[in-house]
């Protein structure tokens, strides 16, 4: 029963996984997320710092 379609697996899955998230894209997403969060955090912290200056 397993015979009919058990051979499709091997290569298709790695290809599809690669299609979904190539390493470069993963890396780019990570860079982009860090960039957004980093800048937002930087701005947020500097607002807090500015606030501390104006006691």
């Amino acid at each position: 029963m397993l015979s009919t379609s058990s051979y499709a697996q091997g290569c298709t899955q790695c290809r599809d996984n690669a299609a979904a998230t190539p390493i470069a894209t993963q890396h780019a997403y990570r860079t982009a997320i860090l960039l957004l969060v980093g800048v937002a955090f930087g701005i947020g912290s500097s607002v807090v710092l500015v606030g501390r200056r104006f006691r």
């Binding site: 397993l2 379609s5 058990s6 499709a8 697996q9 091997g10 298709t12 899955q13 996984n17």
Partner: peptide, 9 residues
Amino acid sequence: TGAEPTALQ
């Protein structure tokens, strides 16, 4: 992890 190699496609 992905599916087992014997999984139905």
